[in-house]
Write a protein that binds this DNA or RNA. Sequence first.
DNA 1: GTGATTGCAAATCTTTTGCACTAAA
DNA 2: TTTAGTGCAAAAGATTTGCAATCAC
Lengths: 134, 134
Amino acid sequence: MLARLRAVGLRPTRQRIALARLLFTGGDRHVTAEQLHGEAQAAAIRVSLATVYNTLHQFTAAGLLREVVVEPGRSYFDTNIEDHHHFFCETTGMLKDIPGESVVVGALPLPPSGTEIRRVDVIIRVRRDPQTFL
Amino acid sequence: MLARLRAVGLRPTRQRIALARLLFTGGDRHVTAEQLHGEAQAAAIRVSLATVYNTLHQFTAAGLLREVVVEPGRSYFDTNIEDHHHFFCETTGMLKDIPGESVVVGALPLPPSGTEIRRVDVIIRVRRDPQTFL
DNA sequence: GTGATTGCAAATCTTTTGCACTAAA
DNA sequence: TTTAGTGCAAAAGATTTGCAATCAC
C-alpha cells in the first residue's frame, strides 16, 4: 500500500494507508464515501468523513479509483479502473461491473469540435423483476 | 400543451402549462431545475423552485421528459425522449444528444438474474481540447 | 522544524417535505 | 365543493471548506 501511494505521489499517511487497505484488499468494489467511512469506523480506524471524501477524490485524481455517476446526489467509487461498464439496479442501488469486452460499442460519432473523448460510459439500468416481489 | 398534459393525466395548471411551453417549444433541450426556474422568472412566470422540481419529476414520470445523470449532485432533464445517447463535456457541463442510431451497442450481456433491463445509457465524456485555451 | 494532511464544525448546494393557501373540475 | 396542486420556508442529504491541531519527512 505504502509503495502504491508513493508511486502516485501521495504521502502515505495513516488514514490513506488504512483506506487504501479497505478499498484494495479483496476484489473489485463500489463504495460511497459514507459506506467507506462506516467500514473504517467498524474497523476501529479513526478517520473523519471529510478525510474520506478528500481521500476518495485524491485517489480518483491519481488514477487509483474511478468515479461512477448513476444516481443524482450520490457518488460511487469503483476500485476497478480497467476499461469496463456497469449494470445499475434502480431498485436496490447495486452496481455490477461488466467487462469491457462484453459490450461492444460500434463506431463512435465525432465529438463536438474542440473536444476530445475522455471516456465512454455505458450504464445498463435494470430493475428487479416484478414477480420477484411475491 | 393543455391536451398534452391531459393526455398523460396531469391537471393542466397555470404553472405546468407555462413550464411545458418553456420546455417543449423550439427543439430539444437539456435543463436543470435551477435553469428552468430562472427562465420562468425571466419570462415573468411566477413559479416556485419547489414546483419546478415537482413538475420536472411529474413530467418525467409521465414520460414527457427523461432524466440524465452525468454529474454528482445535479440532474439534467432532457426533452428528447427518443432512444438516444449523450456527449457530456466535463469542462463546460454541456450535454449534447447523439441520435440512437449513431451508437451501436453490440449484444448486451445478460442482466443479473431477477432483473430486467430498463434502459441503456451511453455517455461519451469529452473535455475541451487543451490547445483551445490559447 | 516545516509543509502536507487531518479533524471538526460550519457552510454550501441541490433536492425534498410539511402544511396552509389557491385553483381546477 | 372537493381534491389536486402550489408556495414558502424549513429540513434533509451529500459534499466542501476554513482553520487550528497533527503528522510525515
